[in-house]
């Protein structure tokens, strides 16, 4: 199958190797600043709040709320031709960071999806080296 027909896979960079390694191991991690205590997604070499480079990795407890979503009907990439309709989301983790993701385990119908609904972490295996953090309704 031509590569462009596959779902796009991330190419980890030096500052995100650990994030993707941990995701493969079933953990969601993000950065916390040792100087000012801010948390941030996505991983960088500096804290965007105070510019400190003293950053540590925190493992998320995997709980959060739905901040917003869309139900995608027209595939934006050939790799999603067989996936539509699917639910994209921005999830607000209880630790305070927002991250892009997908919702699973819920019908792709607007009436089924509530902003603010409680979500829990799951993982979807994309290929041999990448697992994606996704979310499903709690319960």
């Amino acid at each position: 199958m031509p590569e462009e027909n596959n779902r796009p896979a991330p190419i980890p960079q030096p500052e995100s190797d650990y994030y993707w390694e941990q995701a493969k191991a079933g953990k969601l991690v993000f950065q916390k600043c040792g100087a000012c205590g801010s948390v941030q997604f996505f991983p960088r070499v500096l804290c965007t709040s105070c510019n400190s480079t003293d950053l540590e990795w925190i493992e998320s407890a995997g709980k959060g709320s739905l901040f917003t979503f869309s139900i995608v009907h027209q595939p934006p990439h050939p790799g999603f031709r067989n996936a539509v309709p699917y639910i994209t989301a921005i999830v607000e983790l209880d630790e305070g960071v927002k991250m892009p993701s997908q919702l699973i385990g819920i019908d792709p119908e607007p009436e089924q999806i509530e902003i603010g609904m409680r979500l829990e972490l799951a993982f979807e295996e994309l290929n041999d080296s990448i697992s994606l953090p996704v979310f499903r309704p709690v319960g």
Partner: peptide
Amino acid sequence: TQYEYPYGII
């Protein structure tokens, strides 16, 4: 492309 594209946020 690392954090949004894999979810179909494209």
